[in-house]
C-alpha cells in the first residue's frame, strides 16, 4: 500500500522533471536557432523558399476559413444584436472579434495543423533518413541550414496569414450582414471605424500573431528535430506538435489578452 503510493508520487515527480527538462532543451534549441540565423538572412532565398512552403501553401485554408468564420459571425451577431435593436453595431462586433481574437488565434491554430505538422514531419523524416546526419558530415550546420530558414519563413508568414484571415472575415461579415441581411452599409463601416483602434486593436492583434507564430514554429521544429528516427516516432511527434502548439496558442492568448486589453 505504502509502496504503491510512493511509486505513484515518484511517477509524478519523474514526469514533472522530464517535462521541465524537455522545456529546458527546447529553450536551448530556440536560442541556438536565433544564434544561427545569420546565414539564412545572408542567403535570403532560403527563407523565401520556406515562406512559400509555410505561408503560400496555407493560403487557401486560411482564406476560406476566414471568410466562413466572418460569415458565421455576421449571422450570429445579427441574431443577437437584433434583440437589443442595435444591428448597426454588427461591424464592430465582427471586426473586433476578428482583429483582437479570432484572426490571430484561429489562423495560428490552422497554421499549426497545416504548416506546423508538415514542418515536424519533414524534419523528422530528414532525421530518420539520415539527411541531417549527412549534412553534419558535410560540415554544414543543420540548425543554420535547415532549421533557421524554416523558423524565419514561418514567423514571417504568420502575421500576414492572420491579417488575411481577419480581412477575409470582415468581408464575410460584410457579405452576410450588409449584402444578404441588409444592415445599413454606412453605419456598418463607420461604427466599425469608430470602435477599432489601430494601436489598441490591430497592432496588438499583429503582435499576438507574431508571438503565436514563434511558439508554433519552435514547437514544430523542436518536435521534428527531437523525434525518434522511426516511422512511429515521427508520427507521434507530428501529433504532439498539433496538440502542444494548440494548447500553447490558447494559453499564450490568455496571457497576452490579460496584458493588452486589461481594463482599457
Amino acid at each position: 500500500m505504502m509502496d504503491t503510493l510512493l511509486e505513484s508520487v515518484r511517477g509524478i515527480g519523474r514526469r514533472t522533471v522530464d517535462r521541465v527538462w524537455r522545456m529546458g532543451v527546447a529553450a536551448h534549441f530556440f536560442l541556438l536557432v536565433l544564434l544561427h540565423s545569420g546565414t539564412s538572412f545572408r542567403r535570403f532565398h532560403l527563407i523565401v523558399r520556406e515562406i512559400f512552403t509555410a505561408g503560400v501553401l496555407s493560403l487557401i485554408i486560411i482564406l476560406v476559413s476566414g471568410l466562413f468564420v466572418g460569415m458565421v459571425l455576421g449571422l450570429q451577431g445579427y441574431e443577437t444584436l437584433q434583440t437589443y435593436g442595435s444591428e448597426e453595431a454588427l461591424g464592430v462586433l465582427v471586426s473586433l472579434s476578428l482583429v483582437r481574437e479570432l484572426g490571430p488565434v484561429v489562423a495560428a491554430l490552422l497554421f499549426a495543423s497545416r504548416a506546423g505538422s508538415a514542418i515536424t514531419a519533414e524534419i523528422g523524416l530528414m532525421k530518420a533518413t539520415e539527411q541531417i546526419a549527412a549534412m553534419e558530415m558535410m560540415a554544414v550546420d543543420p540548425i543554420a541550414r535547415v532549421i533557421a530558414p524554416r523558423f524565419w519563413g514561418a514567423v514571417i508568414s504568420m502575421p500576414l496569414l492572420a491579417a488575411l484571415f481577419s480581412a477575409m472575415g470582415v468581408l464575410g461579415g460584410y457579405l452576410v450582414g450588409v449584402v444578404l441581411i441588409g444592415v445599413d452599409e454606412g453605419s456598418f463601416w463607420s461604427q466599425m471605424q469608430a470602435a477599432v483602434d489601430f494601436k489598441e486593436d490591430i497592432l496588438n492583434g499583429v503582435i499576438k500573431s507574431v508571438v503565436f507564430g514563434i511558439a508554433v514554429t519552435i514547437i514544430a521544429l523542436f518536435e521534428g528535430y527531437d523525434a525518434p528516427p522511426t516511422a512511429e516516432g515521427v508520427s507521434r511527434a507530428t501529433t504532439r506538435t498539433v496538440v502542444t502548439s494548440s494548447l500553447a496558442i490558447l494559453g499564450l492568448d490568455f496571457v497576452l489578452t490579460a496584458f493588452m486589453f486589461r481594463g482599457v
Binding site: 515562406i51 512559400f52 493560403l59 482583429v99 502575421p159 500576414l160 491579417a163 480581412a167 463601416w189
Partner: peptide, 26 residues
Amino acid sequence: IDLWVGIFVVAGIVAILFLALKVGNL
C-alpha cells in the same frame, strides 16, 4: 516560388492596410 511569395507578401500587407484604414480608425 519567388512570384508566389511576392504575391503572398503583397496580399498580406494589403490585408494589414485594409484593417488599418478601412476597419480601423487610421
